[in-house]
């Protein structure tokens, strides 16, 4: 029982950065912008959060710095693709490359240093409950924040005017523009929200999960977050489900080694990537349905004629 609870807890911890980054990318994509730079924004968030935490001694300020860092990177992407109308695929790649390089340059002074452990929730009585206690009431605050974000984004997208405008811009930017919505402005905000969330996901790695700074520590999680959005068919709740699934696979891979299953560690590490491909095939197979789920203006530049 205890082992199962531990596996579930570590799966949630492994999944949380994916929840943040995936949710942010989902919002950006619902506004019609495909930002492939998630990995770059995450790694900048990781180093910005870590540096700010060491400088101020406050993990909370570190998280804010991470969000600011991610959002700044996203703004850079916005200037390229929204203002300069550059190709979104190429710009996203440039953002990732730039982010990985800049973070290494910036983090040179921090490599090998570690952060104090991030506090976990403790409610006397509840946290001490067997099995569910630590699982439900003993996680770090960001796990709960990520769950709240999922609920918040789901609510805003489907139940509010803001969500309606965002989706209108993503589905048909010409119509949204004709009604008078500021297409470019909405997209800037959505992309920067995505950047802030990716930064938060990155800071979760460097401040909570490990907690230390290692060059290239995101190790492809930004790309998995991108795949998650497709996996989730652009629905927030399914991003959560998908992220936990991936977190579970990652942790199973670690535990199978501990349990003495004799499989090459490197072959096991391939599992999340292969699983992404399999899932991608399963959901895209039905092309009509995949096209219905994707925002109609995804990846297209907008230029108002008047």
């Amino acid at each position: 029982m205890d082992l199962l609870a531990n596996v579930l807890i570590s799966a949630m911890i492994a999944a949380t950065p994916l929840v943040f980054a995936g949710l942010g990318e989902l919002v950006a994509e619902r506004s019609g912008v495909l930002n492939l730079g998630v990995e770059g924004m995450m790694i900048i968030g990781a180093i910005a959060g870590f540096a700010a935490m060491l400088a101020t001694g406050s993990a909370i300020l570190g998280l804010f710095a991470a969000m600011a860092g991610g959002a700044l990177m996203a703004a850079l992407f916005g200037v390229l693709t929204l203002t300069m109308r550059a190709n979104q695929v190429a710009s996203g790649l440039a953002l990732t490359m730039f982010g990985l390089g800049l973070s290494a340059l910036w983090g040179q002074a921090y490599s090998g240093r570690s952060a104090p452990p991030f506090p976990r929730l403790y409610i006397p009585g509840l946290t001490d409950l067997p099995f569910v206690g630590k699982l439900l009431f003993g996680q770090d605050g960001l796990v709960y924040l990520s769950l709240a974000c999922v609920a918040g984004v789901a609510y805003v997208l489907t139940r509010t005017r803001v969500g309606l405008i965002l989706r209108a811009v993503g589905e048909n930017h010409d119509a949204a523009h004709a009604i008078g919505y500021p297409v470019i402005g909405v997209r800037y905000l959505a992309v920067m929200f995505g950047g802030a969330m990716a930064g938060l996901g990155g800071a979760y790695l460097s401040l909570v999960q490990t907690p230390l700074w290692v060059e290239r520590m995101t190790a492809g999680r930004g790309w998995i977050a991108l795949a998650l959005v497709v996996f989730a068919a652009w629905r927030p709740l399914r991003v959560l489900l998908g992220a936990y699934l991936f977190g579970g696979i990652t942790i199973l891979q670690l535990h199978s080694q501990a349990l003495g299953v004799k499989i090459d560690a490197q072959l096991l590490s391939m599992v999340p990537y292969i699983a992404t491909i399999v899932v991608l095939v399963l959901i895209s197979r039905d092309s009509a349905r995949a096209r219905l789920a994707a925002p109609a203006c995804l990846g297209k530049s907008f230029h108002a004629s008047s």
Binding site: A86, S91, L93, M97
Partner: peptide
């Protein structure tokens, strides 16, 4: 003693500026 990642900073910037200045081709 700059990290080897300096290379990818420059490579990323090349692509950024190329994509940004490309706007001048069509506009």
């Amino acid at each position: 003693s700059l990290p080897s990642a300096t290379t990818s900073v420059f490579q990323g910037m090349f692509l950024f500026f190329l994509l940004a200045t490309d706007v001048l081709v069509k506009y």
